[in-house]
Amino acid sequence: MSLQYLPAVKPSAIALGTVFNHTFELGVLSPLFGKTWQKAKSANTKEEFLKSREASSAAAAWGSALVGSALQSYGVGALINATGTLSYKGAAYLGALIFAATSAPGFISQLVVEHRAFDQVGLNVLAKLFETVGLSVFLSWWGTRTIPFGSGGTPLSRNSFRAE
């Protein structure tokens, strides 16, 4: 598989989007890290703690959340570029569509089928809204294109339509 077919997204947008997204993801994972912190305080030695199940599960959760945040940042940036989204309003709509397609069905199922507490689901909904709508608006503000519109190098630039 060749990577040349993947849409280009500014590396700084992916990095900052990863930090933005990972911040909210850690809010959701904080109960896991709280348990891990308690285990670390009660351990006799560092080695004992590092060999514990809590340490390995916290490291796996943190690492997978970080990779997931980076992939989500790239995906949202690629969608912003592919759709030609230039405004904050358009970015918010795009983020809302991403939320509706990926997260909303799960939250409805948690409320209706699993009968989870509304405040628990509401907190997760808020975190996912920041991760989708917030990330889209943030990346739109930062910029995701490697070659900006109007620079003469893109097919959509004003110079490409000028008769020479």
Rank of each mutant, 00 (worst) to 15 (best):
L3Q: 10
Q4A: 08
Q4R: 05
Q4V: 04
Y5P: 00
L6T: 11
P7Q: 09
A8C: 08
S12K: 10
A13K: 04
I14Y: 02
I14Q: 02
G17Y: 00
F20E: 04
E25L: 05
E25Y: 02
L26R: 05
S30K: 11
P31T: 03
F33G: 01
T36Q: 01
W37G: 02
W37I: 11
Q38L: 12
K41A: 07
K41V: 05
S42K: 08
S42Q: 13
N44H: 07
K51Q: 08
R53D: 15
R53V: 11
E54Y: 13
A55P: 02
S56H: 13
A58Y: 12
A58M: 13
A59G: 15
A60K: 15
A61V: 14
G63Y: 08
G68W: 02
S69F: 02
A70H: 03
Q72Y: 03
S73P: 01
G75E: 05
G75Y: 09
V76W: 02
G77Y: 00
L79S: 03
N81L: 13
T83Q: 12
G84C: 07
T85H: 02
S87L: 10
Y88R: 12
Y88W: 14
A91W: 01
A92I: 04
A96D: 04
A96K: 01
F99Y: 15
A100C: 14
A101H: 04
S103N: 11
A104K: 05
A104L: 15
P105L: 10
G106S: 12
G106A: 13
F107G: 02
I108E: 08
S109Y: 13
S109R: 10
Q110V: 03
L111V: 11
V112D: 06
V113K: 13
V113F: 09
A117V: 06
D119E: 11
V125G: 01
A127N: 03
A127V: 08
K128A: 07
K128G: 02
K128W: 13
K128L: 06
L129C: 07
L129E: 04
F130W: 01
F130R: 00
V133D: 10
V133Y: 03
V133K: 03
L135T: 00
V137Y: 03
V137C: 05
S140G: 13
W141C: 11
W142V: 14
W142N: 05
G143I: 13
R145A: 14
T146I: 15
I147C: 04
F149Y: 13
F149C: 07
F149V: 09
G150V: 04
G153F: 15
P155K: 12
P155H: 06
P155Y: 06
L156C: 06
S157A: 14
